[in-house]
Amino acid sequence: MRRHTLSTAVTLCFAASLAAAASAPSEARPASPPASQTARQQARVPVLVDCFFHPEVRPTDFVLACGDGNSRLTSLHWSRWGQASAKAVGVNIVNDCKPYCAAGRFHSYPVVVRLDRAQPWKKRPHLQHYSRMTLEYPAGRPDTFPPTVTYPLWN
């Protein structure tokens, strides 16, 4: 019973923090680099679009399951971020959802992340964004996952 309560509390806290971040006024968010610097940097390389439709370059964390937060990438260390592709190593934290997601446990898996297929972003056509992500699991992986998983990224 205690494990179920803790799992539920963690899930609810995560969902609340996502909602708070989305609704926080702009002055409550961390300061960004000057717009001209950001635009110049983003014009040179593709961006990764997060759950809140913010463009990111070399993020350290990235939520894959935007609706429920049951899969996310953490501790990302980028070795490449260029016009054609990007590559990082990190950890994929995945909820096993057993017996159901609110009662499930999160497990960590080492992962190699590759981004490619840069194309104009519909929201900001002057920016290129990576439209495909491939995850390779060099060691363990979630029970139902193959060694390599490819996801289309939102536009």
Rank of each mutant, 00 (worst) to 15 (best):
Tyr137Gly: 04
Glu136Val: 10
Gly104Asn: 04
His54Phe: 13
Ser131Tyr: 07
Ser71Pro: 03
Phe106Ala: 09
Leu127Ala: 05
Gln128Val: 04
Arg29Ala: 13
Thr144Leu: 14
Asn70Ala: 03
Trp121Arg: 01
Leu135Trp: 00
Leu73Asn: 02
Asp68Gly: 05
Val49Pro: 00
Leu115Lys: 00
Gln83Asp: 11
Gly82Cys: 06
Ala31Gly: 07
Asp68Arg: 06
Val113Trp: 00
Glu56Asn: 13
Cys66Leu: 08
Pro110Thr: 04
Ala139Thr: 07
Leu18His: 10
Pro146Gln: 07
Arg132Tyr: 04
Pro55Cys: 07
Thr148Gly: 08
Thr38Val: 12
Trp78His: 05
Pro46Arg: 01
Val57Arg: 12
Ala43Leu: 11
Ser26Pro: 07
Arg72Met: 11
Trp121Pro: 00
Phe145Ile: 06
Ser26Ala: 15
Leu73Gln: 02
Pro46Glu: 05
Ala65Ile: 09
Leu64Asn: 05
Gly69His: 00
Pro30Asp: 12
Ala35Pro: 02
Lys87Ile: 03
Val94Ala: 02
Pro110Tyr: 04
Asp61Cys: 14
Pro55Glu: 06
Ala21Arg: 11
Gln128Phe: 06
Val49Tyr: 01
Ala35Val: 09
Gln128Pro: 01
Pro34Asn: 10
Glu136Cys: 04
Ala118Met: 03
Pro25Ala: 10
Ser23Gln: 14
Ser108Val: 06
Ala118Arg: 00
Lys123Met: 15
Pro46Tyr: 02
Val112Ala: 04
Pro138Ser: 05
Pro46Lys: 02
Phe62Pro: 00
Glu27Trp: 14
Trp121Glu: 01
Tyr130Pro: 00
Ala139Trp: 05
Ala65Leu: 09
Phe53Ala: 14
Gly67Val: 06
Cys66Glu: 09
Thr134Phe: 03
Val112Asn: 04
Pro99Ile: 02
Tyr109Gln: 08
Lys123Trp: 10
Trp81Glu: 03
Asp116Pro: 05
Val57Gln: 15
Leu127Glu: 02
Pro147Ser: 10
Trp81Asn: 03
Ala65Thr: 12
Met133His: 01
Ala84Gly: 15
His107Val: 11
Met133Trp: 01
Gln41Gly: 09
Arg44Ala: 14
Pro34Val: 08
Asp50Tyr: 03
Leu135Gly: 00
Trp81Gln: 05
Leu115Trp: 00
Pro138Asp: 05
His54Met: 13
Pro138Arg: 05
Gln119Val: 11
Pro138Val: 02
Ser32Gly: 07
Ala39Arg: 12
Pro59Glu: 11
Ala118Phe: 02
Arg72Val: 11
Pro147Ile: 09
Pro30Cys: 12
Thr74Pro: 00
Pro59Thr: 09
Gln37Asp: 14
Ala88Val: 01
Asn95Cys: 06
Ala84His: 15
Arg117Asp: 11
Arg40Glu: 12
Cys51Asp: 08
Pro125Thr: 08
Arg29Lys: 15
Ile93Lys: 11
Ala84Trp: 12
Ser108Gln: 13
Cys66Gly: 09
Val112Lys: 03
Gly104Glu: 04
Ala35Asn: 05
Pro147Asp: 10
Asp116Ile: 06
Lys122Phe: 08
His54Val: 14
Ala65Lys: 10
Phe106Arg: 07
Gln41Tyr: 06
Val63Gly: 02
Gly104Trp: 05
Asp96Phe: 03
Thr38Ala: 12
Gly90Pro: 00
Asn70Val: 03
Asp61Gly: 13
Ala86Glu: 01
Arg44Tyr: 06
